[in-house]
């Protein structure tokens, strides 16, 4: 026996190693179950799945790819947060700094933006696939509802992030996108029946969203906190529910 394999065996049979990695790659049925059920990340899967339900032509892997997009935006987003200040005076300059001075800054920003756009598309495709396979049917009705909320949250995440570069594209896209809030019936100052509730330009649904009557520095901070903290927290919580319910109900498939 070579010195190397002796050393390897000494390491993997040590108390420290075995306290960290509870089991190895033995190809036994028991170990295959343990690989999934004993791992906090992998145990989001059921330990056994229907054979046809994992085929790519059935799932398109779209739910998984959507989650991967979410992870990419989280990782690149944290990287960008180190260099970006959500203050009207600095935000745009920080974008330039990030693009030209920061190591991998441009790459991280591009990844973040394209992954966010791609996530909107993959979440639609995932929804389309789930519709076409009828996977929202009992017992998975409520998980579809959770999924619809996640779709809305995906759009809101993308939308709040749109403002942060603080360039012409962002403020006007967000202005146009938020104008509907001031037309909300009863709650918007330009909406029907607004006069009955006493709303005005600085005190209505859009002002609540903007933190003031017009888009400005206060809006930037508000959207930054929504984008980086509030909506990701809610999204993560709902993702846990979404995945957990898939695990409980199993992957969908024809009745046996």
């Amino acid at each position: 026996m070579s010195k190397w394999s002796e050393f390897k065996r000494a390491v993997v049979s040590s108390q420290v190693w075995r306290s960290i990695f509870r089991h190895g790659y033995d190809d036994t049925p028991r170990n295959r179950v343990l690989m999934v059920s004993g791992n906090v990340w992998l145990h989001l899967h059921p330990s056994k799945v229907r054979r046809h339900g994992i085929r790519l032509k059935f799932t398109w892997c779209m739910g998984g790819i959507t989650f991967l997009m979410y992870l990419i935006t989280v990782v690149t987003g944290v990287y960008l947060m180190f260099y970006y200040r959500p203050v009207a005076e600095y935000a745009y300059a920080d974008m330039k700094y990030l693009e030209f001075d920061m190591p991998f800054g441009m790459l991280m920003r591009n990844m973040h933006r394209w992954a966010a756009h791609a996530m909107v598309i993959t979440v639609w495709l995932h929804m389309f696939r789930v519709f076409m396979t009828g996977s929202y049917k009992p017992p998975r009705e409520f998980n579809w509802v959770v999924g619809v909320v996640l779709l809305v949250l995906t759009l809101l995440l993308s939308f709040t992030g749109y403002l942060l570069p603080w360039d012409q594209l962002s403020i006007w896209a967000v202005t146009v996108g938020s104008n509907m809030a001031r037309a909300t019936p009863l709650l918007g100052h330009e909406g029907p029946f607004g006069e009955f509730t006493g709303v005005n330009p600085v005190y209505d649904a859009r002002a609540f969203l903007f933190g003031g009557g017009e888009i400005g520095a206060h809006t930037l901070l508000r959207f930054y906190i929504l984008h980086c903290i509030f909506i990701p927290l809610v999204t993560s919580l709902l993702l846990i529910v979404h995945f957990w319910r898939i695990r409980r109900d199993g992957l969908s498939g024809p009745a046996l």
Binding site: V33, H45, S47, R50, R51, G64, L68, L256
Partner: peptide, 19 residues
């Protein structure tokens, strides 16, 4: 009727390659 396979490795490897 039992057409189930283990998630490890059948499902996890698809997810890994997709990722």
């Amino acid at each position: 009727g039992d057409d189930k396979v283990h998630s490890w490795p059948h499902l996890v490897r698809i997810e890994f390659l997709c990722a």
